[in-house]
Amino acid sequence: MESMNHGLGVDIAFLLLATLAVVTGWRVFRTDSMVRASFFLLVSFIAVGVIMILLAAEYLGVAMFFMMAVEMTVMALFMVMFMMNPAGLNPMNMVHQERIAIGAGVAGFLVLGAMALLATFPDQPVPASLDPVRSLGNEMLGDSMLIFESAGLVLLTTMIGVVVLSSHRGRYGAAAEGSMPPGLEPGGDPAGKPEEDEEGEGGHHHHHHHH
């Protein structure tokens, strides 16, 4: 179907990388440790990044490496902060509606796979004379400048939104005002409930959360 010329080595490398991407992607949801899960996902991303480099998208492939390395590091940190059992020393299976999820996953694969097998796509490979990195740069800072700048603006908005959401205090008092955490045992004291302030009235006390 395609007419791109590449050697046997590229095919072998692709097969190995594809297997690695799928197996590590699957292991993400089958490992006991949350930290391991995020690094399995990183390996899956890196395998896809190398495939992109094989496809001559040299900037995108390498960009995958550093984008995902930082993202998954942050993810692993959050795992350790919020999850029970980050080290995976105990077996763990935290799933709901698993049958429906498996069905939806398989259905998604079958539909998309059928499209890949049955549909015919135009055979127009990248011309050999094209410099992919230069072409991407010219597009981002040329015709698609508006899209690129909008993405930057959305990222800035995200940063502000994230600070607002995760900051401890809002305009009308503490961010957790009025919410009651669930009890440690039925009817017991809420988990992590801030201690009563001995300063009494006087308003702006800090909640002593230590996560």
């Binding site: 594809a18 799928v22 495939i51 996953g105 998309l112």
Partner: peptide, 18 residues
């Protein structure tokens, strides 16, 4: 595209089941 479909399928399973 088959590889992409497999990754998307696993992702759908994870997003719905976790």
């Amino acid at each position: 595209l088959l590889l992409a479909a497999a990754l998307i399928g696993i992702g759908i399973y994870g997003a719905l089941s976790q």
